[in-house]
């Protein structure tokens, strides 16, 4: 049996005193791909931010364990160093910092090792090619003037350079056209191996046909109400969330 990587126990989170997550339980083992689906406002992005350690999301109760260690109180950078990565739904623009400089800085922060400029350039060029990104992106300012699709691709580029153990993809498929989704999915599939795990947060199944998820979880009103296989996503694609909502409204 593969080793456990992430273990979320009865996680409760509120923002500005409003309860958003109301007791999440989720175990992710090494090498697994999990999908969390849910309608708008169900708490999907809150879960993503909380796992990465956003200071505005306070944990009221419960535990997040990563590789057996409680990480509730770790800051975002400490979590990144442990191997957690979040692909942002809305990546921030940072003028004056080039993609290449940023990636190199991030890589050496996360790995604790300095990488030579020339070696890094080579690695970066390869990874960019895989994602069908033009070389000139490397010298552009981070996310500045990027289209929605370019920003998402850049997130996946970050992921493949940083090589985390757990990659959380928050609505990475939104705002992407069909070709871009395919390229991003290929990037994710290339990244995945028997040790690395992926948690995809989405409200569509667009990415799912490319990824081979092990589990699908339905998040409703701050709780995971149903877990199953790919058939669950198909059901939602056809019938929407209404049936499940009805089922759990009592």
């Amino acid at each position: 049996m593969s080793k456990n990587l992430l273990d979320i126990k009865d996680l409760k989170v509120n923002i500005d005193d409003i309860d958003i997550l109301k007791g999440i339980n989720l175990k992710i083992n090494e090498g697994e791909t999990h999908i969390i689906m849910g309608p708008n406002g169900s708490g999907k992005s809150t879960l993503a931010y909380t796992l990465m350690g956003h200071p505005n999301y306070s944990i009221e109760d419960g535990e997040i364990e990563f590789e057996g260690e409680n990480i509730n109180d770790l800051k975002a950078d400490e979590r990144a160093k442990k191997g957690i990565f979040l692909s942002f739904q809305y990546p921030e623009e940072i003028p004056g910092v080039t993609v290449e400089d940023f990636l190199r800085t991030a890589k050496s922060s996360v790995s604790g090792k300095k990488m030579g400029i020339i070696t890094f350039k080579k690695v970066l060029k390869e990874k960019m090619k895989e994602l069908d990104m033009d070389d000139e992106y490397a010298s552009r300012y981070l996310n500045l003037g990027f289209s929605g699709g370019e920003k998402k691709k850049n997130e996946i580029l970050l992921m493949s350079v940083l090589e985390p153990k757990l990659a959380i993809l928050d609505e990475t498929d939104s705002g992407l056209d069909v070709d871009a989704i395919r390229i991003v999915a290929e990037g994710v599939n290339k990244f995945k191996d028997e040790n690395r795990s992926i948690l995809v947060i989405t409200h569509y199944d667009k990415l799912l046909s490319y990824l081979k998820p092990d589990y699908i979880h339905i998040l409703l009103d701050g709780k995971i109400v149903k877990t199953g296989g790919i058939e669950l996503a198909k059901e939602i694609d056809q019938k929407g969330y209404e049936n499940i909502k009805m089922e759990f409204s009592n």
Binding site: K75, A76, D77, F85, F88, P91, E92, I94, S109, L162
Partner: peptide
């Protein structure tokens, strides 16, 4: 938060900007 989620501590993140 974005910069820190990429492994930079708060001081490094501000410095970078």
């Amino acid at each position: 938060f974005y910069l820190m989620s990429r492994g930079l501590d708060i001081r490094e993140a501000k410095q970078l900007i």
